[in-house]
Write a protein that binds this DNA or RNA. Structure first.
Length: 263
DNA sequence: ATGGTTGCACGGCAA
C-alpha cells in the first residue's frame, strides 16, 4: 500500500501537478491539504478518471481544506473539529483496515507569542487538543497512519539552521514540545526519520520568497508521516519528492512525501 | 534589519 501526502496550496490551480504526481508516484491513496475549495468545486472527475474513484473531501471557501483520494475502497470516513471551529483541517478515512488521518495544523502567524498573536495561540491549542484526543479515543494497538502538514519542524536537522530558527514560528521550543506530546500520546512512529537519520537534513517545504529555493536551500520539514506500532514492521520506504518544488508551472511551496507499507 | 512571494478573489488576509 502506497500513501502520498501533499500540501497542494489550491487543488484547482495545481491540478495538472497533482496528476503528474499520480503518474510518477502511483500512490494507492493521496492525502491533500490546503485544497482551498468547497466540496462542490473539488475536481473529483479528474481523480476518478485515473482510478481514484473513492474520495473523502472536506473543504471550505478560500482557506484550508483536506481531501483523501483512493483507488481502494474507503470503508469509513470521519471529520474531526478542533478549537470549536469547523475549518476543515482533519479528515479520517479507513482503507484496507488502516485508519488514515489527514491533518493540516494551523501555521500560527509570524509572532511566536500566544499572548499577542491569536493565530499562534490557536496553533498551540490545536496541538494540545490533538494530544489529549488520541489516548482518549484510540488505542496504540490500532493500525493508523497520520499524514499531513503539521507546520512544525521538530528536529535540529528539520530546518536549515537550528540556531537561527529557534525564534521562528514552526521551530520554537514550545511548538516542538507540543508536537512531541501529540506524538508521544499514543506512541506515533516518525516514519520519515525511520529511514533518514536525524543527523541528515530533511525538508519538505521551501519558501516562495527565496530568489532561488534550490541554491539557498533554506527548507523546513513541515510535512510528516507517522504510523502506530502495529505498522512498524510493515514500513518499506519513504520518498520525499524534492524535485516537485521545481515542477512548472507554478509549483507548490511544499513537496509530496510518499510512504510504502507492505500489504 | 528588512523584505522578499503566492493564492483567493478582487481587498486584504493567510501562509
Amino acid at each position: 500500500m502506497r500513501i502520498a501526502t501533499w500540501n497542494i496550496n489550491s487543488v484547482r490551480l495545481r491540478l495538472p501537478l497533482v496528476m503528474r504526481l499520480l503518474d510518477e508516484a502511483d500512490p494507492d491513496v493521496l492525502c491533500l491539504q490546503e485544497t482551498k475549495c468547497v466540496d462542490d468545486a473539488f475536481p473529483r472527475n479528474a481523480f476518478a478518471e485515473r482510478g481514484y474513484t473513492h474520495a473523502h473531501i472536506h473543504g471550505m471557501k478560500g482557506y484550508n481544506g483536506v481531501a483523501i483520494l483512493s483507488r481502494r475502497p474507503i470503508e469509513g470516513q470521519e471529520v474531526l473539529h478542533w478549537c470549536e471551529r469547523q475549518d476543515c483541517r482533519h479528515g479520517v478515512a479507513r482503507v484496507d483496515g488502516l485508519e488514515i488521518h489527514n491533518v493540516y495544523v494551523p501555521a500560527g502567524g509570524d509572532v511566536p507569542d500566544p499572548a499577542v498573536n491569536e493565530k499562534f495561540a490557536h496553533k498551540l491549542r490545536f496541538l494540545d487538543e490533538l494530544a489529549g484526543w488520541w489516548p482518549q479515543e484510540r488505542s496504540s494497538d490500532r493500525p493508523m497512519v497520520l499524514v499531513g502538514d503539521l507546520n512544525v519542524a521538530p528536529l535540529e536537522n528539520d530546518v536549515w539552521s537550528h540556531k537561527q530558527m529557534l525564534g521562528v514560528v514552526s521551530h520554537t521550543p514550545v511548538e516542538v514540545e507540543k508536537l512531541g506530546a501529540v506524538q508521544r500520546s499514543i506512541g506515533w512512529i516518525d516514519a520519515m526519520r525511520a529511514f533518514v537519520p536525524d543527523t541528515e537534513k530533511l525538508y519538505t517545504w521551501w519558501s516562495y520568497r527565496a530568489q532561488d529555493w534550490a541554491a539557498s536551500d533554506r527548507g523546513r520539514r513541515l510535512d510528516h508521516v507517522w504510523v502506530t506500532p502495529p505498522l512498524q514492521d510493515r514500513l518499506r520506504g519513504i520518498r520525499v519528492l524534492r524535485e516537485a518544488r521545481g515542477w512548472e508551472p507554478k509549483p507548490s511551496d511544499h513537496v509530496p512525501v510518499v510512504l510504502d507499507l507492505a500489504d
